[in-house]
Amino acid sequence: MKKLRHLLEYAAARFGFFLLDRISLPAAIALGRRLADSWYFLNKSRRQIAKENILKAKIASTDSEANRIARDSLRHFAVLAVEYLKAENVLNEGNWKEHVELDVSPETMAIIREPGRGIILVSGHFGNWEVAAQILSYIKPVAGITRDMNNPYTDRLMKQRKQRDRYTLTPKHDAGVDRLLSVLKKGEILALLIDQHASERGMPVDFFGIPASTHTSPALLHLITRAPICFGYCLRTGPMSYKFKAVAPIIHKPTGNRQHDVHTILEQLNHELENAIRQNPEQYLWAHRRWKIPPPRVS
């Protein structure tokens, strides 16, 4: 039964890609928005999670406003998927600057442009992080980590579609320490998303004032390799138009207190992500259970 469902999903995905490759970008975006609205209407639990998260983060104070942002957020992610898949045929090394405005701190840009110097770029499920990685790969190779999809057929299809020369995605189960270290050693960009619930292995760090279990590896990689770490994101400003923003790198001198050092760095990164989200809440993925288990605060 599961295999049948997977095969049906795969067939639907193949048809979706077939259609996407043949219709115009405006038509694809309009279709994506319609599908997002349908999904929003049908998927009550995710709708509820998104609204609760928006209210919890005090992004909205009324149910109707939270509902609007949650719906627009889903529309944004449908458009994100469409534009990411279309970007293969639109963005290239010769024209990407026509589509992207760079707003990058001079120190961070100097590191990105410096051959042989690795950097850890941290972002969240905000804006269009996939296009961000593609854009940056035109300057310096980018390596990211991806989670395998539950459906092995669509997983293989997406990986065939996503792989590019200078932007590589490693499955989470293959992303061991040696792989991450070698990315930085080779002087590449290690792109990590920081806003997934990290379960009991994560560290509780405030996110919108509420402790959220946060992955410690970005901070630890910075502390043990001394590779600079910075926060960046790619905002969608119009159809296939983006603004890539990155702040100055964090260079944190280890104090010998691992918990304190890691917490300080993660707190700073979460704070940057919060600031970005507050300015454009519709471009954040609110339907993820970020505060799944309320961990105790670290004093």
Binding site: V177, L180, S217, I224, P254
Partner: peptide, 12 residues
């Protein structure tokens, strides 16, 4: 992979 990073920090 996570606790190895903790260990390397501690060693350093």
């Amino acid at each position: 992979s996570l606790s190895i990073l903790d260990l390397v920090y501690d060693i350093q």
